[in-house]
Measured scan of single mutants.
Amino acid sequence: QTTIQVRVPYRVVGLVVGPKGATIKRIQQRTHTYIVTPGRDKEPVFAVTGMPENVDRAREEIEAHITL
């Protein structure tokens, strides 16, 4: 297991999390990772935990939302 920090712009935190957390839950299920969402007043950084290859996939999925 490994944990990485995925930093995103403030404006996309809501996009990545999705309505009621649906998007981030879907990313967690698809990539078999555990993702901690940043709090409102915190740095916009997601903490992604899982097997290294799964963590990389989750990071790619999160980063895909940044380019939307």
Rank of each mutant, 00 (worst) to 15 (best):
G18R: 04
R57W: 06
E60C: 07
R30T: 10
G21W: 02
R59V: 05
I62W: 02
I35Y: 03
T2D: 08
E61Q: 09
V48T: 02
Q1P: 10
V16F: 03
Y10K: 15
Y34W: 11
G50C: 01
G14S: 11
N54F: 10
T49K: 09
E60I: 12
R11K: 15
V55N: 00
V16Y: 00
V17N: 08
V55T: 09
E61P: 04
R57C: 07
G50E: 04
P9C: 00
L68H: 13
T49Y: 09
K42H: 12
F46I: 00
P52Q: 11
Q28N: 00
G21Y: 01
D41H: 10
F46T: 04
E43Y: 02
A58W: 02
I35T: 00
R30W: 00
V48K: 03
G39L: 05
G18W: 03
R7H: 11
G39N: 12
V45S: 06
Y10E: 15
D56C: 12
I35E: 08
K25W: 07
E63G: 01
E43I: 03
V17Q: 08
G14P: 13
E63V: 03
R26K: 13
I27S: 00
V6A: 06
V55L: 03
E53S: 08
Q28S: 10
V12I: 09
H65M: 15
R30D: 13
T2A: 07
D56I: 14
T49W: 09
I62S: 03
E61T: 03
H65N: 12
G50S: 12
G14T: 02
M51V: 08
T2Y: 11
K42T: 10
E61F: 09
T67D: 13
V45T: 08
V8F: 09
E61W: 06
R30V: 10
I35S: 03
E63T: 08
T3A: 01
T37A: 13
T49M: 05
T37N: 03
V12E: 11
R57S: 08
G21N: 00
R7T: 05
M51I: 10
K20C: 09
E63K: 08
I4M: 06
R11H: 14
T2E: 09
I66K: 08
I27V: 07
E53A: 11
Q5K: 14
I35P: 02
Y10G: 13
I35A: 05
G14A: 12
R26Q: 13
G14H: 07
E60N: 11
E53T: 08
Q1R: 06
T2M: 12
R57T: 01
V17Y: 09
I27H: 01
P38E: 01
L15H: 12
Q29K: 12
A22E: 12
R11L: 07
I35M: 06
L68P: 15
Y34V: 15
A64N: 14
P52D: 01
Q1D: 03
T31P: 01
H65V: 15
Y34R: 15
P9H: 00
K20V: 07
H65E: 15
V48C: 01
K25T: 08
A22R: 14
H32W: 05
R40P: 13
G18I: 03
I27F: 02
D56E: 15
V12H: 14
L15N: 10
I35G: 00
V12L: 15
P38M: 10
V8A: 03
G50H: 05
K20W: 11
T67E: 15
I4Q: 12
G14Q: 10
E53Q: 11
K42V: 08
T3Y: 04
V17G: 05
V17F: 00
E61N: 02
T33N: 00
E61A: 13
F46D: 00
A58H: 00
D41S: 07
T23R: 09
A64D: 10
Q28D: 07
Y34T: 15
R7V: 05
E43L: 02
L68E: 15
M51T: 15
Y34S: 14
V45R: 05
T2P: 04
V16C: 07
V36R: 14
I66R: 08
M51K: 13
R26T: 07
E43R: 04
V45N: 08
T67S: 13
R11S: 15
I4V: 11
E61D: 03
T49R: 08
T3K: 02
R57D: 07
K25Q: 12
I27W: 02
K20Y: 07
G18P: 01
E43T: 06
V16M: 08
K25I: 03
E53L: 06
E60K: 14
G18Y: 10
V16K: 04
G14C: 02
T49I: 13
V36K: 14
V13R: 10
V36L: 09
T23G: 10
T33K: 09
R59S: 06
E63C: 07
V48F: 00
H65I: 14
V13Q: 01
K25E: 04
T67Q: 15
V17K: 08
P52N: 04
V13H: 04
V12M: 14
E61I: 07
T37W: 13
E61G: 03
T37E: 09
Q28P: 06
E60A: 14
R30Q: 14
I27P: 05
T23M: 08
Q29N: 01
Q5F: 14
K25L: 08
E60W: 06
H65L: 15
P19Y: 13
V8H: 04
G39V: 06
V16W: 01
K42I: 00
A58L: 03
D41Y: 09
P9W: 07
T67H: 07
A58F: 09
G14W: 03
T67W: 11
H65S: 08
M51E: 12
H32N: 15
V16H: 02
R40N: 09
E60L: 11
N54P: 02
T3P: 01
R7W: 04
